[in-house]
Structures are given as structure tokens and as C-alpha cells.
């Protein structure tokens, strides 16, 4: 955890008139796992999508591995410094997994994993297939290689989505509430998979409501509300003695709900 891999400074994002991110400063260090928590609508998804540049920030700067990729021009507005193909390349290094999986339903599990490595990374089919098979073994779904996404359970779909993202060998993984659309009985298998990624020392920014995951796996918990980071710190400290009233209120509610 010596170097920052992703660095956001003063980042704002808008949806039309709506001001969704209101000045976010966040540094993700190499191999670090950050649990991003906060009420629904606080801007967690927007922050992840901005980090991946699916959403273009309106103000602020973003650096990746020490290189500035979004800068502020003289008027204080953000400018993406990557050309189209560089942007595509950047996205291969910052993977994102979505709440609703977003698997490609017309392709088999194997094809889902092989598509981008062959098209974008230029791997030949055999190499891509062999690597995909390894990843499917890692997430425990080798026997589903030829299945169609529609035939999988929610937990299985989400593990395929994780494997699909890992197939690009990203330095950063952004996970957007990837267990919240799942049946309770399949949440565990996905959390185990998330722990496996953490052990590979891939830096992770994980929007989640799973406080057990945050406590056990995260190096840091970041609490967001209304488009801002309110407070952050090591899990033990954040969960035991949050400083900000809003954090305390949120944690009280979510921890109580988890135990009742």
C-alpha cells in the first residue's frame, strides 16, 4: 500500500441540473480495500461510475497510477485527457461490477468472459478461454462454462460478473452493491468471492451494506451522504466510535436492522 493507484480530488458530478457529487476527495492505495457506505441516494454508485469514467465529472481531477487522466481547465471545469482508445484501455484497468450483474444474456458464461479479452486486450481465443476457465474455477463455476446467464441463480450470475471483470486483470475493482439484488442464501457465496479478490491484492472500492464484509475485509470505511464524504477511518474505529452524528445515525440504523 505504498502508492496511490486511484486519486480523486474535488470531484463533482451532475445529472443535468442535479448535483450528485459535491466535492469528493478520495485516494485508493495499491491493494487497499475501501468499503463505501451511506444511505441510498448518497452518491455511491455515481462515485464508482465516475471513477470508471462512465460518468464524466463536471469539476475536479482524477489520477490513475500517478498519471492525471482528468484535469481542471482554467474555468475550473473537468476535462478528460484520454482519447477514445485510451479511455477504453483505462476502463480495462478499472473494472466495475454492477448491482444487477449486467451479464450479456445472449452469450454463454464462457463467451461473457472471453469477449472483452479477445476484442480489447487482443488475446487469442485459446489463451482467453484457458484464462477464463481458471477464473471460473476460482469463483467455483467451472461446470457452468457453457450455461447461458438466464439459467443461473443470482449468486452465480454475480460470480460470473466478477470473473468477467477479473478477466481483464484490472488494478482496481469497483463493486457496486453487488449483493443487494441477491437472495439472502446466495449472499454468502458472493462475499466469499469478494474476499478472494481482496487476497489477490487488487485494490477495491466496494459500495456495500454488508457490515460484516466491511468489518472483516476492508482496510478503511468511507461514509458518504448527500454527495459528500462525511467521514472515513479504519473499520474498528468507524464502527465503534463514529465522530459525525450522521454516521452514527446511519450505523445505528443499519446495524440494528442486521441484528433483528
Amino acid at each position: 500500500m505504498d502508492k496511490p493507484v486511484l486519486d480523486l480530488a474535488g470531484v463533482h458530478a451532475h445529472y443535468g441540473e442535479f448535483h450528485a457529487l459535491r466535492g469528493v476527495d478520495l485516494t485508493l492505495w495499491r491493494g487497499e480495500v475501501i468499503a463505501l457506505i451511506g444511505p441510498s441516494g448518497s452518491g455511491k454508485s455515481t462515485l464508482l461510475r465516475t471513477a470508471n469514467l462512465l460518468v464524466t465529472p463536471t469539476h475536479g481531477r482524477i489520477s490513475f497510477e500517478g498519471r492525471e487522466i482528468v484535469r481542471e481547465n482554467g474555468a475550473g471545469r473537468s476535462e478528460v485527457l484520454l482519447r477514445d482508445h485510451q479511455l477504453n484501455e483505462y476502463r480495462t484497468r478499472v473494472g466495475i461490477v454492477f448491482q444487477h450483474f449486467n451479464l450479456f444474456p445472449h452469450l454463454s458464461v464462457m463467451e461473457n468472459l472471453v469477449l472483452a479479452p479477445t476484442l480489447v486486450l487482443g488475446l487469442d481465443r485459446d489463451t482467453a478461454t484457458a484464462r477464463a476457465m481458471e477464473l471460473l474455477k476460482t469463483v467455483g463455476l467451472a461446470e457452468k462454462a457453457d450455461a447461458m446467464p438466464g439459467d443461473l441463480s443470482g449468486g452465480q450470475k454475480q460470480r460470473v460478473a466478477i470473473a468477467r471483470s477479473l478477466a481483464m486483470e484490472p488494478e482496481v475493482m469497483l463493486l457496486d452493491e453487488i449483493t443487494s439484488a441477491l437472495d439472502p442464501e446466495t449472499v454468502g457465496e458472493v462475499i466469499r468471492t469478494m474476499k478472494l479478490i481482496a487476497e489477490r491484492h487488487v485494490a477495491m472500492l466496494v459500495a456495500t451494506h454488508e457490515m460484516d464484509f466491511a468489518r472483516e475485509v476492508a482496510d478503511r470505511i468511507v461514509f458518504m451522504d448527500e454527495g459528500r464524504i462525511v467521514e472515513s477511518g479504519p473499520p474498528a474505529q468507524m464502527l465503534a466510535e463514529p465522530q459525525e452524528p450522521r454516521t452514527r445515525l446511519f450505523l445505528d440504523r443499519i446495524l440494528r436492522r442486521a441484528t433483528t
Binding site: L54, N88, R91, V120
Partner: peptide, 16 residues
């Protein structure tokens, strides 16, 4: 939109 997001987030070009 979600299928576009998934494809673009894997680095696929607009055309691909």
C-alpha cells in the same frame, strides 16, 4: 443502458 455500461466498462469501443 445497463448493457452499454457493461460493455463500455470492459473497454469495448462504441462500435464493438
Amino acid at each position: 443502458r445497463s448493457q452499454v455500461d457493461a460493455a463500455r466498462s470492459l473497454g469495448l469501443s462504441k462500435l464493438d
